[in-house]
Design a binder for these strands. Structure first.
Length: 489
RNA sequence: CGGGGCGUAGCGUAGCCAGGUAUCGCGCCUGCUUUGGGAGCAGGAGGUCACCGGUUCAAAUCCGGUCGCCCCGACCA
């Protein structure tokens, strides 16, 4: 009986474990439509927290939200040669409306560059209109062959930022600024350490000059591209005639950037922090930070414990946390469910702190706090409960990042490495391997063929090895750059 | 789209080779007793056995086809 309730262990079958956690923690469900996903309230609650945090960060850096249509005229997508080539194979196309065949098919947006820059062209006349800093929260559709809950679904929710600038340097600065913002979010809110850097030509966004990304390590040592930021150059400005009159009076094409993160982050969160008991959600993103499990034996105990629980919820708790200094707290007052069963259930759902309250505690004016991340228990006085919980939540947030970073470091390989050794690693448990690259796409492709590992990024300065690699991992010629290699989702 | 596996109650499954009343566990409902790590007893509800066709007195089971899902590849946030 107990066995049936146990999860598949992560070590045994990571994929099966991941699916089980997502489904049993009720984050999402399969929909009747192939490849689409239903995000349930528990999963959406995490997304809402992510949205709020990111939205605040975007606004603090001068961006504003707007909304553009779901449908894009097919011809729009075709105006940028590389863009259409990149996205045409995975678009869904509407050919009929109102019972009639449409004159021009409408593409369900796979991304909104085209429609947004078509509008930008109408809004920008002068350098005084720049920079134009817009963000959109939306759903997009990409007809992927193979899907996976949260990580790759036909439809997904995301945020896509689109900006226009007067100069290349301004656009580049924006692209880098957002990459840094994504990194801060991943590490500060998700407790998910990342490596930042530039994508190679083969992984560059279709239509971009340069693509930057944050890459996180999952618990099977595979990389997850968790966010991208593109310097689009003038490619789309030229395609959509997005021009402005400069200070000196001439007409110039604007410089664009686009950047996005999606509900994929929820998958990343699960694969970064989940354990064999289920989900672990970092406090800042947890829809419920504290769950109170009351314990009683007699009728008087029950009354007293429930009363005390309600009092705690009223004084320091707020389910929605409209008040920033109140704690998102839930009371699990279900009868006929024993405390032990409740423990397992909330552990599966990843609530960061469990507050146990029973007659023995009440007699001592205390409660027992149990951490989800490491299982540590500690009694705390009811008089200082609010402060103690706040402090513990911060501690958990920090510890989760620390733990994830330790795992990333432990599974990172640096220094001179033979190709045989590299293959051994990729055939085995995998790793983030920092190694030299000659800069040739042939070497990159050959390695992908032979090992399934790809260059995730050419890492930013901060992540480079102290001793720069001297030779290409594959061909042994002098290294033009240092690359981060890993198998990826 | 290639290779492999699987479709039986909300979930997980037995039965299929050797055709004959639909199996078990979890969950759900009712009642009583329980409640500091997955409660016990009693009673109960819930099924076009993925779909279509064929063979047969009789099909979850045999045969042909279709659809869907999962895993591994190719593609990708």
């Amino acid at each position: 009986m107990a066995d049936e309730k146990k999860l598949t262990s992560r070590a045994e079958d990571f994929s099966a474990w991941y699916n089980e956690v997502v489904l049993r923690a009720e984050l999402a469900d399969y929909s009747p439509v192939r490849g689409c996903m239903v995000i349930r309230p528990d999963g959406y609650g995490i997304w809402e927290r992510m949205q709020r945090a990111l939205d605040d960060m975007f606004k603090a850096t001068g961006h504003r939200n707007a909304y553009f249509p779901l449908f894009i005229p097919q011809s729009f997508l075709q105006k940028e040669a590389e863009h259409v080539e990149g996205f045409a194979p995975e678009t869904a196309v509407v050919t009929h409306g109102g019972g009639k065949e449409l004159e021009e098919p409408l593409v369900v947006r796979p991304t909104s560059e085209t429609i947004i820059y078509a509008m930008f062209a109408k809004w920008v006349q002068s350098y005084r209109d720049l920079p134009l800093l817009i963000n959109q929260w939306a759903n997009v559709v990409r007809w992927e062959m193979r899907t996976r809950l949260f990580l790759r679904t036909l439809e997904f929710l995301w945020q896509e930022g689109h900006t226009a600038h007067a100069t290349h340097d301004d656009a580049e600065e924006e692209t880098r600024k957002i990459l840094g913002l994504y990194r801060d979010f991943a590490e500060g809110w998700m407790a998910m350490p990342v490596v930042t850097g530039r994508k190679t030509e083969s992984e560059r966004f279709a239509g971009a000059l340069r693509t930057y990304a944050i890459e996180a390590m999952m618990q099977d040592n595979k990389a997850l591209q968790a966010g991208t930021s593109h310097n689009l150059g003038q490619n789309f400005a030229k395609a959509f005639d997005l021009k402005f009159q400069s200070e000196s009076g001439g007409m110039e094409y604007a410089w664009n950037t686009s950047w996005g993160v999606s509900t994929r982050l929820i998958g990343g969160l699960v694969m970064t922090h989940g354990d064999d008991k289920g989900l672990r959600v970092p406090p800042l993103l947890a829809p419920t930070e504290v769950v109170i499990v009351p314990i009683w034996r007699t009728e008087e105990d029950r009354t007293a414990v429930l009363e005390a629980s309600a009092r705690i919820c009223r004084s320091i708790g707020d389910w929605e946390r409209r008040e920033p200094n109140l704690i998102r707290m839930r009371l699990d007052d279900r009868e006929n469910v024993k405390p032990g069963a409740k423990y397992y259930e909330w552990e599966m759902r990843g609530v960061p702190i469990r507050l146990e309250l029973g007659p023995r505690d009440l007699a001592q004016n205390q409660a027992v706090l149990v951490r989800r991340d490491n299982g540590a228990k500690q009694p705390v006085s009811l008089d200082t409960l609010g402060e103690d919980i706040e402090q513990l939540l911060e501690q958990i947030q920090d510890d989760m990042l620390f733990e994830a970073r330790a795992r990333l470091d432990a599974n990172t390989v640096r220094g001179e490495i033979t190709y045989d050794r590299f293959r051994e690693i990729m055939d085995g448990q995998g790793a983030f391997v920092f190694a030299g690259w000659c800069g040739n796409a042939e070497c990159e492709a050959a390695i992908k063929d032979e090992t399934k590992a790809t260059i995730r990024v050419l890492p930013d300065e901060e992540f480079r090895s102290a001793d720069a690699p001297t030779r290409c991992l594959k061909c042994g010629r002098p290294a033009a750059d240092e690359a981060l290699w890993a198998k990826a989702y």
